[in-house]
Design a protein around this nucleic acid. Structure first.
Length: 563
RNA sequence: UGGGGUGUAGCCAAGUGGUAAGGCAGCGGGUUUUGGUCCCGCCAUGCGGGGGUUCGAGUCCUCCCACCCCAGCCA
């Protein structure tokens, strides 16, 4: 971890930990990140990962990576592999502490037997629908099951037979005997085990009864010696149950702490919705660069450092909030600005012929790789009579404050020469197909001794040396800050931004970009940060994804000018 | 009179009785061979609202209001 990660000022979790350390409740800090392997990790999980591993690091403690694999119907090895890759990519290390809830199934079974023996758990024959009816409602107390008072011997026998597979799915469950009248529905005799005859990614067909979250999670934490079990707000109501199980068993008792999950504007962050985007083909997959998944962000070109910095800056609290995605953009730009090589790529080329430049002449110009960091060196840039500039950098009629190309206007070609636009050549349709310019030979390198003011600086590529590349311009996946804001009968997919991906097939890059490798990041001068695609990029067919644009103050000025 | 939470600027968020940190966004200015970066300045007499305690309240008491979560054999 880099030294820049000095966490934000205090937060309530640190306050609790400090208190626990001071009071002697715990003499160490041990956290865990406990994903269920039923989907891909997203930026919201990153917040939790950074929190848990960050706390461990800060308090010289440990943090485990533990899969909460208690439901074989939804979980898969594919997800386990992807999650491990993602957490590692984010830069965290769990050393030899990679655990699985399924490794504790036997132990959990023994604990359940203990609860049965003390009369705190019973086998119930009620169907799922009946259990629901007996549970009562938010305002109406529940009713006790007729099977609630079976003898310990009968419960022991039935539970063993459940394990042996003598019953079908749904035929029986093991329930905790707590309080059917509790105002907290979680305490109305919660189900501890259900029967699922399904193969588990890790335990195969060894088990046909699987523990429920509430029963399993505290045990997992306890077995691993977790001191602070951090989860999201919706589990606040479950804490009394978490505590109850541990207290009944009299085993090591971690402290559960709940915090508010991350929400980001212009995006959705729920496994269900992300899955829908994938399944309905709105995106190309879990790692589509528009997805807020770790895999998607990685492919888009985000850095682990930027994501960690973002996690630190958003803070940790208990109030539901929606973080502005502009903060994520900011963290990214700040990181990339320091480390990305500068390169010139013309996205929408417009041909420029420099009339007074010799036909067969070619020059090599020196260009710095990163003005923020001279140690990153420089490269050579070929220059010749015919070049390409950005179409957007020319206007036939220049608006006020325009310091780019227009008839009669002089601009600087970055690292090269000053050129002045003499004429715009059009085709029969009236479209501009070429610019005729002249250059000032005395301006080599992009400056003159006379101190003449040339405000506009353009990026360009030499026509004879340019490398054709594909550029994918990504933007927010959703048009609205809150994608859920839809008309009657619609869902969030109605707010998908049709321009969230624009593919440019005619972009031209400076020669050096031939050497780019998948995953390499660059700043394309005056455009933004780009990353060679992890999957589709090759030297034969270079593909660059736009990670994030540069801030564009001209866009703001122009907007103001128009109003 | 079901239970559990949360309300500090446009968005996050510190603050633990002594007179409202910080970041993002925004606005204004400077530097600049990227309209980038960087630098400087501005941006809550105010902490959901009303009462109260106190020399002093975002912090304590009290009443009220708003919003979020819970009725899976999901996590």
């Amino acid at each position: 971890m880099s030294e820049k990660e000095n966490k934000t000022s205090g937060n309530f979790i640190k306050a609790i930990i400090d208190e626990d350390l001071k009071s002697g409740k715990f003499d160490r800090v041990h956290t865990r990140f406990p994903p269920e392997p039923n989907g891909y990790l997203h930026i919201g999980h990153a917040k939790s990962i950074c929190l848990n591993f960050g706390l461990a690091e800060e308090y010289n403690g440990k943090c485990n990576l533990r899969f909460d694999d208690t439901n074989p119907l939804k979980e898969a090895q594919e997800y386990i592999d992807a999650i491990i890759e993602d957490v590692r990519w984010l830069g965290f290390d769990w050393e030899d502490r990679l655990f699985f809830a399924s490794d504790y199934f036997e132990k959990m079974y023994e604990y359940a037997v203990r609860l049965i023996k003390t009369g705190k758990a019973y086998v119930d024959d009620l169907s799922a629908e009946q259990i629901k009816e007996y549970r009562g409602t938010l305002t109406k107390p529940g009713t006790e099951s007729p099977f609630r008072n079976r003898s310990v011997e009968e419960n022991l026998d039935l539970f063993e037979r459940m394990r042996k597979g003598e019953f079908a799915d749904g035929e029986k469950v093991l329930r905790a005997k707590i309080d059917m009248k509790s105002g907290n529905l979680n305490m109305r005799d919660p189900v501890m085990y259900r029967i699922i005859h399904a193969s588990h990614p890790r335990t195969g067909d060894k088990w046909c009864i699987y523990p429920m979250y509430d029963w399993a999670h505290g045990l997992e934490d306890s077995i691993e010696g977790i001191t602070h079990s951090i989860c999201t707000l919706e589990f606040e109501d479950h804490r009394p149950l978490y505590d109850w199980f541990l207290d009944q068993l009299g085993i090591f008792h971690p402290r559960q702490i709940e915090f508010a999950r991350l929400n980001l504007n212009y995006t959705v962050l729920s496994k269900r919705k992300l899955l829908k985007l994938v399944e309905e083909g709105h995106v190309s997959g879990w790692d589509d660069p528009r997805m807020p998944t770790i895999a998607g962000l990685r492919r888009r070109g985000y850095t682990p450092e930027a994501i960690r910095d973002f996690s630190d800056r958003i803070g940790v609290a208990k109030s539901n909030s929606v973080v502005d995605i502009a903060l994520l953009d900011h963290c990214l730009r700040e990181d990339l600005n320091k480390r990305a090589l500068r390169r010139m790529v013309v996205l929408r080329p417009l041909k420029v012929v420099i009339e007074n430049y010799p036909e067969d002449r070619e020059e090599e110009l020196e260009a710095e790789n990163n003005p923020e960091d001279p140690s990153m060196g420089s490269r050579k840039l070929p220059f010749s009579k015919v070049i390409y500039v950005e179409r957007d950098d020319f206007r036939e009629e220049a608006p006020r404050k325009w310091f780019r190309l227009a008839p009669g206007k002089e601009v600087r070609l970055k690292h090269a020469y000053y050129i002045t636009c003499r004429e715009a050549v059009k085709n029969e349709q009236g479209e501009i197909v070429e610019l005729r310019c002249t250059y000032d030979p005395a301006s080599k390198g992009g400056w003159t001794k006379d101190g003449r003011k040339v405000k506009g600086t353009l990026h360009w590529v030499s026509a004879a040396h340019a490398v054709p590349v594909e550029v994918r311009l990504y933007d927010h996946l959703f048009l609205k800050e809150n994608p859920e804001e839809v008309e009657e009968g619609q869902d969030f997919t109605a707010n998908i931004n049709p321009d969230s991906l624009i593919v440019l097939n005619n972009a031209l890059a400076e020669p050096d970009l031939k050497n780019a490798k998948p995953g390499d990041r660059f700043q394309f001068l005056r455009q933004g940060y780009f990353c060679a695609d992890l999957k589709d990029h090759s030297s034969e067919h270079p593909v660059f994804n736009r990670t994030v644009t540069l801030r564009d103050s001209w866009a703001k000025i122009e907007k103001k000018l128009q109003s």
